[in-house]
Design a protein around this nucleic acid. Structure first.
Lengths: 213, 213
DNA sequence: TCAATTTTGTGACTCCTTTCACAAAATATG
DNA sequence: CATATTTTGTGAAAGGAGTCACAAAATTGA
């Protein structure tokens, strides 16, 4: 896997291929061609092959790809073959929703801790419903618990005013990956990765398309 | 505003500029240069100017842009100057979270209806907390109510198995914009716009970056 | 064994996006 | 009023990403 700059779009598509391959595997398909996969994912077949070519050769000419093997290879590429341990910070509506988001369970992303400040009725509350219950702890224990539970990804679901401060705490706790759902851009130092998920940006996109088509 | 194909990336950035300009406006700034705005949004200054150039001339040479005017112009471009009326379908954890998502209130996106099937304890329940309360109705009233309340955007937060069926209902009800949070790709006919928001895709991205840096 | 068929992997091409660099326009200064 | 300064808008260049088209590899069938 020699180094080369991989387009972010390629990574997003790999994730999509991964999802489709999982469905195909469940459907009992054993071998597929790039054309079939492309069709399923609504992309160009050459695109599929190019995307894979960044990372090696995975198919057999004249045959196609073994679904199971390709799925494994893609997961290895994405780093989604390992279990990622996550923390949610800010247990409001969205935070609670993520705590019991079923799709995470089926995947390799596990929420293993939850934090909030102040509201005493939240602290100590436990997310039931699914998997292991997670107790909500006070934010001042973040650093300690993050280390203890080997947490690698933080999900920020606080109000926007607190998001950067929380990000700073995560950085301090050496949680290297951050997904920020608060509607404000956050900044992290070199070596850390932060992604913002802005619902209103997505809606603005939709609004533009609806207004202009 | 002559026609030309606008890159989706440009639209996404406009949304970002919009957010920054709002903050600047609150901060009392009246005039900014493309360099300042670019800096704030972490993009190139020429990029800002190019993005705007798709839609006209908004600045004054030697001066910059009037924050207030530019913000208005961008909102007009995005179609985010009008109020968009939305419906949420599937009142589980995520659906409930969106119902009380505070950022929508500050913006021009309003949830004006909510639907679910079966669970009798959900139907009729009312989302309190913010803005006008929204009563959860049975899905079989979707078409009727969507017309009545002039709904233009549907948010799908059902389990993945139901997502496509719900999308079909929305299409039937002539709700032209769909945001799908269920982890399965949905398809809509020409003339409709559907966007998928896959949390695990975003996490796969993060996982890739964490694994390879 | 050899030709026909299938499907990958990839170089070349095209198209799209971003960045650069500078003329044009506005303002400020002496 | 002329000159210096600032900052836009944009043509041209550079850089990326996506598509095409075909040789290479594998398989099938006679």
């Amino acid at each position: 896997m020699k180094y080369q700059k991989i387009p972010e779009a390629t990574i997003r598509r790999l994730s999509r291929y991964s999802r489709c391959l999982e469905e195909m595997e469940k459907g009992g398909e054993e071998v597929i061609s790039s054309a079939q996969l492309a069709n399923r994912c609504m992309v160009n077949a050459a695109q599929v092959r190019k995307d894979l070519a960044y990372f090696g050769e995975f198919g057999i000419r004249g045959v196609g790809y073994y679904v199971k093997d390709l799925l494994n290879d893609i997961k290895k590429i994405l780093g989604s073959n390992k279990e990622w341990r996550m923390v949610v910070i800010g247990i409001g509506n969205l935070g609670s929703a993520l705590l019991s988001y079923k799709d995470f369970l089926k995947q390799n992303y596990k929420i293993v801790a939850a934090f909030d400040i102040d509201p005493p009725q939240v602290i100590g509350r436990v997310s039931e419903k699914l998997g292991k219950p997670v107790e909500v702890l006070h934010i001042n224990r973040l650093k300690e618990v993050a280390k203890e539970r080997r947490i690698e990804i933080g999900l920020i679901t606080t109000p926007p005013s607190e998001a950067q401060a929380v990000a700073d705490l995560l950085v301090e706790a050496e949680v290297r990956g951050i997904l920020n759902f608060a509607p404000t851009q956050i900044v992290v130092p070199e070596g850390f990765v932060a992604k913002d998920v802005f619902f209103t940006t997505i809606l603005d996109n939709l609004a533009y398309l609806l207004s202009n088509n």
